[in-house]
Design a protein around this nucleic acid. Structure first.
Lengths: 245, 245
DNA sequence: ACAAAAGTGTTTCCTTTACACCCATGT
DNA sequence: ACATGGGTGTAAAGGAAACACTTTTGT
């Protein structure tokens, strides 16, 4: 096997050597402020020292890409519920300044991951607000490497996911009110996709939410029914085309 | 910079070294036979010699991932119009048998690409039917590595793309009849998504097709109008949510 | 004249949209 | 009692599904 590789090397010695990293575009929705946030980190080392960037790491031996993504995540934040999926892979030459011509063709490839967490639940670990902070998606500064592209890509994915998948419920608490769901949707998709009344009927008609019977009172006003996502009811609908709102 | 790297290595010597490959899931639609095909290649070397697989290659120095994808494509087939986009990245440890424990942790990561070509137009280059062939998507044999997963993923992408993007027109000739479009859609999505009459009205109402005024006669029957995809009319609709059928 | 392929129209049904209204609770 | 947030209902508009029908060609 090692022989086979040496042979291949000699036939075609132009193969690139890669270091592989993962970068996480971690989003959360601040329903109170009605905005979508992305977690940024100030770079502590070269290259691009001092610039804001996505939390990332290089992949270790024996570690899968997803494992690496989870590792960075757990190093930076503490959170109960989260949704994670692969986003896009950036691997062009010269995307990382470390790829100098002198470095014998070592390339830096990055597999970006999309993550969604519940804003209220997240705890930022260790670092100060100076070095790690939530930025509104429409006010993201110039980032290191090609991370701006990753954020843009991820934000788009978030909007799509919300429309045709039940991601929202991955990041909502076990039980929630329909208003909480509605606020999450409006924060992400804007206020012009449906009014509350119609949102209600549509999402209930899907048949994937069930009323727990419990009520939640918030000061004045009628108490809201608490619902639960019924993953059993959703299972047969998985893989089928369906629209959440 | 070389110093920086050595330093990093010593601090964390568990980083994985990667070879990066691209694998292409190349699809075409045989409208005559009403089926979707994927291009497979019999492996000529170890590992998995003799097994069917997707056409792929390792990425060379100075070559972008997309460049590599185009290179494999042009090595295997000759085609005028094609659509290509990144699909998914597979990078788990032990996904390639070459990743033996003795190989000092060298990992094989693969970025898969999705391609769509016009079946009638494609010319298979060089190799015989024994070593390269179109397989119906529902009759794909056991493939090398994790290529079955790639095909599955790509086939799903094809169906989604057809529904909410104008990919179809990337792979149709400059001018085409509405029936040709319809047949492409039915072959991919099945016959139960709309009848021809309704398909017609819907796709014309989008306003992205324009009648060239030319007619195409095919033996008996009324000649069909030849249409052209109007990319200018589509431009403002890009990025907006829209449904092609 | 008739078959074959292309294109048009119509009727029915269902979903979406906009909006008005009723219900339960705290102060 | 009334303000506040939660929940229900309905009428009008729009779009999808099914299917009948007309038009234009070749033989």
């Amino acid at each position: 096997m090692v022989n086979g590789e040496e042979q291949q090397q000699s036939i075609c010695n132009a193969l690139a050597e890669f270091k592989v990293g993962v970068d996480n575009a971690i989003f959360s929705v601040d329903v109170a402020e009605n905005r979508v946030l992305v977690l940024l980190l100030k770079r502590q080392g070269e290259p691009d020292l001092g610039q804001w960037s996505l939390p990332g790491t290089l992949v270790r031996r024996g570690e899968s890409l997803e494992d690496a993504a989870y590792r960075v995540l757990s190093e930076k934040i503490s959170v109960q519920n989260l949704y994670l999926e692969q986003l896009y892979t950036f691997g062009g030459p010269a995307r990382d300044p470390r790829e100098s011509p002198q470095s014998f063709g070592v390339r830096y490839l990055s597999v970006s991951y999309f993550a969604l967490v519940q804003h209220e639940e997240v705890q930022l670990l260790a670092e100060s607000a100076e070095t790690m902070a939530w930025f509104p998606c429409d006010r993201v500064p110039k980032l290191a490497f090609d991370h701006n592209e990753m954020v843009k890509y991820g934000y788009q994915r978030l909007r799509n996911k919300l429309e045709y998948s039940p991601v929202a419920f991955e990041v909502l608490p076990e039980t929630f009110t329909l208003n909480e769901v509605y606020q999450l949707y409006t924060a992400v998709l804007g206020e012009n996709f449906a009014d509350y009344s119609n949102f209600r009927s549509r999402i209930l008609k899907l048949g994937v939410l069930c009323d727990t019977g419990m009520k939640l009172s918030r000061g004045a006003g009628r108490p809201a029914s608490l619902y639960r996502f019924d993953s059993e009811a959703f299972a047969p609908l998985k893989d089928k085309p369906m629209i959440f709102i």
